[in-house]
């Protein structure tokens, strides 16, 4: 797992994906930050952080698109799958590499908070709880993006597929509003990523939401392992 983690993290930098991701993410979040706090003359970061959700949906698939699709295309998966490691270690090695890249990205909110502290008082507990929310939501989104990448050998398909899957999940709330049957709309709402994230941005630390995000990450990583297992047996 360690070897794959290190190689994957290094590959982000040699393939310049790291720079593209971090550059665009910092730019987007900086813009959102400026518009929602500095330009609006408020030290309340909640509005900014709830919008950051969109940037994550757009950019996490950029990190995950290559993870498995490229290996399959270059036939390097053959090297990994015949190495003396388990499929779980292979998937998790890649998962944590993407996760660390993601952490590099979202840690920018602390920089923003520090900038804001020069102009007003910053609610640091709120910032911390938001960071936890971003970490958890990212953990779930990355697992979903990687599953999409494992299904195709085309990076672009993996990226677009990842963005659409995450957008769909994001839209679940919206869809739920249009459905009259109560129990279906209840299910959709409870599967929604956004309302759980929104709670965090308001400063509500809900343990069930934490469990929700962690379970999604575990389930999707497990499904990715199963895909490789199935491919081996079919």
């Amino acid at each position: 797992m360690g070897a794959i983690f290190r190689r994957e993290l290094g590959a982000f930098f040699t393939s310049s994906i790291a720079y593209v991701f971090l550059g665009v993410f910092y730019l987007l979040s900086g813009m959102l930050f400026y518009i929602n706090t500095l330009a609006s003359g408020t030290s309340d970061m909640a509005g900014y952080l709830s919008l950051l959700f969109l940037a994550i949906i757009m950019l996490v698939p950029v990190l995950t698109m290559k993870t498995f699709s490229e290996e399959k295309k270059q036939k390097t998966d053959q090297g990994l799958l015949t190495a003396p490691i388990s499929l779980g270690a292979m998937v998790l090695g890649k998962y944590f590499a993407v996760f660390v890249m993601y952490l590099f990205g979202i840690s920018i909110i602390f920089v923003h908070a520090v900038i804001l502290s020069f102009f007003g008082t910053v609610d640091w507990t709120l910032v911390a709880s938001n960071y936890v929310a971003l970490v958890l939501m990212g953990a779930a989104c990355i697992a979903i993006g990687m599953l999409v990448s494992a299904l195709t050998e085309n990076q672009v398909v993996a990226a677009v597929g990842g963005i659409f899957s995450l957008l769909f999940i994001f839209m679940l709330d919206f869809v739920a509003g249009f459905i009259d049957i109560e129990f279906i709309s209840d299910i959709l709402t409870s599967l929604s990523f956004y309302n759980k994230y929104y709670e965090f941005t308001c400063g509500i630390f809900n343990l069930s939401s934490v469990l929700f995000y962690v379970s999604v990450a575990v389930v999707f990583n497990f499904l990715t392992v199963r895909i490789f297992e199935k491919r081996r047996w079919s």
Binding site: R7, G10, A11, T14, S15, Q74, K75, T76, D77, Q78, G79, L80, T82, P84
Partner: peptide, 16 residues
Amino acid sequence: ANIGYLPEIPPLYVDM
């Protein structure tokens, strides 16, 4: 762990 395998297309990470 007992096998060294060279597939038809060598599994090389070409950026390394």
